[in-house]
């Protein structure tokens, strides 16, 4: 508690009768905080999401219980999810193998996007006229509703692996060349001057100055693309129901067979995959950039 001190200052002003009334209080210090232990860190980082998760589950249960019984199949219960999906013999292995299939499509499409996207970003950075030529069509490509051209892709490439990969690539491409170009262009002008003064070639400047500087921006692009990749892969599968497919096919089949529990199981698997891809890029970005880049630094 601050205690008010008797004042004895400002005699000059006091003599002139102009002293302002002061309300001087003593402010006490706080002890140096002890660094939080591991348990405390876990608590602060795990408790909020767990609480939020519980809240969501409660909400789900509330909505479900308010449904008339004949519509409750729309929102399976945990018991149902277990009995009719996860505990069904052979279902979990199937879910896993389908996840692998979907992941293969997503990762291949993403790899395609990233390699071509980086190449395109660098080429646009090198030649201004190519940027002028290509960039508008990148925007056009982004504005094309990919789902609408799936029949075209099917006619052109058939029903195998490649057309699905292409659909993933179309979904995930845009963010790669655009973020790379943005990053390459925002390298510090004086860093470029430094390289120019030593007569460095364009290639050396690209590798030692522009690309490292663009890294964090590019990784923001990767995260955007990565989070779209799994969704894109599942979407692509919705159009290809023959053969042994991935999670998308499971979604469709279980809907057709009214196995809503299995549909939910597939959805859960899909989000787990999406989150995994997102976390992967987050982890990699952190590893690569946190020691020098402010924004990728872990919050203390």
């Amino acid at each position: 508690m601050p205690d008010t001190l008797a004042q004895n200052a400002a005699p000059a002003n006091a003599a002139r009768g102009t002293a302002r009334k002061a309300n001087i209080e003593a402010h006490s210090a706080v002890p140096i905080p002890t660094p939080p232990g591991l348990a405390h860190k876990l608590l602060t980082s795990l408790v909020p999401p767990i609480l939020a998760g519980i809240l969501v589950i409660l909400l789900y249960a509330m909505v479900r219980s308010s449904l008339p019984p004949h519509r409750q199949f729309l929102m399976p219960s945990a018991q149902g999810l277990w009995d009719l999906a996860f505990a069904v013999p052979g279902f979990v292995p199937e879910l896993l193998s389908r996840s692998v299939t979907t992941m293969a499509i997503a990762v291949t499409g993403l790899a395609l996007s990233i390699s071509f996207g980086c190449l395109m970003g660098i080429v646009m950075f090198r030649f201004l006229f190519l940027e002028k030529a290509i960039f508008p069509y990148l925007v056009v490509l982004q504005s094309v509703p990919v789902l609408a051209i799936v029949p075209l892709i099917q006619s052109a490439l058939g029903f195998g692996f490649m057309p699905k990969v292409l659909i993933v690539a179309l979904f995930t491409f845009f963010a790669v060349p655009t973020t790379l170009l943005l990053g390459l262009k925002s390298v510090d002008k004086n860093i470029l001057n430094l390289f120019k003064l030593q007569g460095a070639t364009w290639r050396t400047t690209l590798i030692k100055a522009c690309l490292p500087s663009a890294g964090p921006t590019l990784f923001a692009g990767f995260s955007i693309s990565g989070s779209l990749a799994v969704i894109a892969a599942i979407t692509s599968e919705l159009f290809f129901l023959s053969g042994e497919g991935g999670l998308g096919q499971l979604l469709m089949n279980s809907k057709i067979d009214f196995k809503y529990e299995q549909m939910y199981a597939a959805l859960i698997a899909a989000s787990v995959l999406s989150i995994a891809v997102y976390l992967f890029f987050k982890w990699l970005g952190n590893r690569l950039f946190s020691h020098w880049h402010e924004a990728s630094e872990k919050r203390q």
Binding site: D188, N190, I191, N193, L194, F195, L197, Q198, G199, A200, T204, K208, A209, P212, S213, G215, F289, W292, H293
Partner: peptide, 24 residues
């Protein structure tokens, strides 16, 4: 040549920044 700001490469340690011009 030094500029108004230090113009270091933030992804390089001090040692590697000082080596930069020699590297080039």
């Amino acid at each position: 040549y030094t500029f108004q700001d230090a113009t270091l490469l933030p992804w390089r340690k001090v040692q590697d920044n000082v080596e930069l011009l020699m590297e080039l």
